[in-house]
């Protein structure tokens, strides 16, 4: 095993341990009283020192772990869902109709649409409901003729075009979400386009491959083909994209924390610690430790998922 992969695994394991400790002990950086200001690291009172207000750096770092993971992982899952759904809806024209799967996709997509868009109060609730219903119907009903069946792909491509044209950071500034849920939906709902385009290409390649024709001719049900052949292959090929996206979400959380905007008021993360540390740059431990945490986390995620992709490619190659 390469050293970088081993180090990445150790770092991520430490992060999850820190997450457990943070939840079990209910750590709040503001609740640590009576510590002197600006203690350097290595003291018995505070292992990594305290900042200019006497807050414990180590406990602050521990508290920053759940804030980061709560934001990045659900946003990644939402992005993945949107990407796979859009890719499937765009690629499905070349496979037989799957009423139950379409029904499920339409229902879940409609519910997510309903849950994610109430911050647009210009549109009344019933209009959102109609849009969700339209989406649902477009997924379920086999549309006759080429012109009508192009409606949904055109709609999705238009959505992709719009999302590509709106800078994410400025959109977050404009909406200024008040809760984690809004922020997660905003991040996940606006970042799936590249992943969706990549998934669509992979799906089309699979549906046109001889492998697909062979398993169809063997009479294997479509669900099993999707589950055992398509999605396993997709998750292997999507790993680097997911690495980029997850690292991107971590960076966005850090950037928003650094800027001090776009995050809920109760949020406390490494970006905020870094900003306060750089304001007092003579206290080197205040900016050094948060910087290292962000750096190691981003690099670990990237290295691990890249390594996973390489091993996946190798196993596929050997298997074939």
């Amino acid at each position: 095993m390469k050293t970088s992969v081993l180090l990445s695994r150790v770092w991520l394991a430490l992060l999850f341990l820190g997450l457990l400790f943070s939840w079990l002990l209910d750590i709040q950086p503001g609740r640590i009283p009576n510590l002197p200001n600006s203690i350097p690291p290595g003291s018995a009172q505070a292992l990594l020192g305290t900042d200019h207000l006497g807050r414990n750096i180590a406990l602050g770092l521990l508290h920053g772990i759940p804030s980061m993971l709560i934001l990045a992982i659900p946003a990644l899952l939402i992005s993945l869902f949107f990407a796979l759904t859009s890719a499937f809806l765009l690629a499905r024209n070349i496979i037989p109709r799957l009423p139950i799967l379409n029904l499920g996709l339409g229902l879940v997509s409609g519910l997510i649409l309903l849950a994610s868009l109430p911050w647009l109060p210009v549109f009344p609730f019933w209009l959102l409901l109609s849009l969700a219903g339209l989406f649902f119907a477009a997924c379920c009903i086999p549309l006759p003729g080429p012109s009508l069946s192009l409606f949904l792909p055109t709609l999705i491509r238009m959505l992709q075009l719009i999302l590509l044209s709106i800078p994410g950071m400025l959109l977050l500034f404009s909406i200024n979400p008040n809760s984690y849920m809004e922020l997660i939906f905003l991040l996940g709902g606006t970042s799936w386009v590249a992943l969706g385009q990549f998934s669509e290409r992979s799906m089309i390649d699979f549906f046109r491959s001889t492998e697909f024709e062979n398993v169809r001719s063997l009479g294997i049900p479509m669900f099993r083909i999707l589950h055992r052949h398509l999605f396993r292959r997709l998750l292997q090929t999507l790993r680097p994209q997911l690495a980029w996206l997850l690292a991107g979400f971590i960076v966005i959380e850090g950037s928003l924390g650094y800027l001090g905007v776009g995050l809920p008021s109760q949020h406390w993360g490494w970006g905020q610690m870094l900003r306060l540390g750089l304001l007092h740059s003579n206290l080197w431990w205040c900016w050094l430790f948060p910087s290292f945490c962000i750096l190691f986390t981003v690099l670990s995620v990237f290295v691990l998922l890249q390594a996973g992709r390489k091993s996946g490619e190798l196993s596929t190659h050997n298997g074939s």
Partner: peptide, 29 residues
């Protein structure tokens, strides 16, 4: 400018920045 507008809750300025950036991105796409 956009960052300061958010801190000062200056919604017209934030939206102006968003629109200009979006138009620029649209042309780039």
């Amino acid at each position: 400018l956009a960052w300061l507008a958010v801190l000062e809750n200056d919604q017209p300025l934030v939206l102006g920045c968003l629109l200009l950036a979006a138009l620029f991105a649209w042309a780039s796409v």
